[in-house]
Write a protein that binds this DNA or RNA. Structure first.
Lengths: 239, 239
DNA sequence: CAGTGGTCTAGACCACCCA
DNA sequence: GGGTGGTCTAGACCACTGC
């Protein structure tokens, strides 16, 4: 059955029907959608078409896919005011979610080129590179690389980095995030972040870069974060 | 030719090659890519596979499609600090781009539900609804709906709204944008915005909502903007 | 092991754009 | 009118998941 000329394409009709079921609560946050082949049978079409509908719902942040496990209805977005110096754990708790941060790797590394300029370093300077994964309600939603200056936080790797970095800074180094320069834009999920988050490489993501300053106005560290694009809403208040 | 087991899929290899050509400048901003069928021949594969590669490059903001005209290399992103009260025209000029704003429609309308609460209105209150399209270098990049309060700006529709709204507010009503509450997240392009921007419905987009206040701290208006997701970078400085 | 999603083939027809 | 992208069909094989 072709979509006749001038009409709305099938995949948009299917998308609308699925969207409707989600809006009406017939499919709730966390629910698994029927398998692609079941959807094919339901809507009497082929997988290519079904997958076009699913991809659009994914782009809209209504559903997400767990690699090879199927499609699920997305939970509500976490929201974040980047100008407030709150940390991830507090944020989650205020919004009724259960936070978790896991250190994937912590090591000394030469400064990556794209981080060199913001951190005002030379090509072969060394930094602490922390790779961490953030969860809300046991769903991995953010892959995070912290580039920290050994001059500011000597022996950083000796501490437990599975929690809030803010608190480690404050407790052991007497350093407080005070201001920052933040930039972000939609991008494609890079391979490493994709693998850690269990999403597919190249799918839409939200990239966030943050250059942090301490209470003395000195550069403190530089973060690069990749968020699942359905998991975050940014709120800024200039009052 | 199948991608043998355990190897990198073809579409990622093709994506990488195209990405490489763009990075090396063999394909420059604004250039048109070869047609999909030519790419099929070049990489010895089918359109489904090629289109997967192109979709990923699009998701990453490296290329964009002009409906039924082909694929083009994206220009650099405009950047915007939402906490600075600058307007679109100044922004473009500072970044060496040629701005243009076109009024698509201006009319009195009942307040849409999702705008009612932020504007502190009642269900059947009326507003001025402006629908505008913003261009940088003759490429439509932002579809914008302004919901303005008749109480603040009586007779707004009597003025020329093809330029900066900021300036109209200031010149004729002595009102200045002073603070705002801003929220945004990645979403799918809705039908109306898609049609105006000449992109396809459902493709990734960046949605931005802004509640503006005047110099007296009163609510002034509410904007909903849809940006091509490859055209904007947000920068916030909390110094 | 049955079924899933991930990837891919080799076509097709259509509306629309541009020359 | 030839070529483009937009949509769709009807299959296929694979690696992996979950039972």
């Amino acid at each position: 059955m072709k979509s006749p000329s001038g009409e709305i394409p099938q995949y948009l009709l299917i998308k609308a029907q699925l969207q409707d079921r989600i809006a009406r609560g017939a499919l709730k946050s966390g629910d698994k959608l029927p398998s692609e082949r079941e959807l094919c049978a339901l809507f009497n079409t082929t997988r290519v078409t079904i997958r076009e509908s699913l991809a659009q719902l994914e782009a809209g942040g209504l559903i997400w896919r767990a690699d090879r496990r199927g499609w699920f209805v997305s939970p509500d977005r976490l929201w974040l005011d980047p100008t407030q110096n709150t940390n991830f754990h507090k944020l989650c708790q205020e919004q009724g979610r259960t936070p978790k941060t896991v250190l994937l790797e912590g090591r000394v590394a030469p400064v990556p080129v794209e981080v060199m300029t913001p951190l005002a370093l030379q090509p072969f300077d060394q930094i602490y590179l922390l790779t961490r994964l953030r969860y809300a309600d046991d769903r991995a939603i953010c892959y995070c690389e912290n580039h920290c200056l050994p001059a500011r936080v000597p022996d950083l790797l000796g501490h437990d980095l599975n929690g809030s970095l803010t608190e480690v800074y404050q407790r052991y180094y007497d350093l407080v995030y005070t201001s920052m320069h933040l930039s972000f834009w939609p991008t494609a999920m890079p391979a490493q972040a994709a693998a850690a988050l269990g999403v597919m490489e190249g799918r839409p993501a939200l990239m966030l870069r943050r250059l942090n300053y301490d209470q003395h106005g000195r550069i403190l560290d530089f973060d690069i974060e990749y968020w699942r694009h359905d998991s975050l809403r940014i709120e800024v208040d200039t009052h």
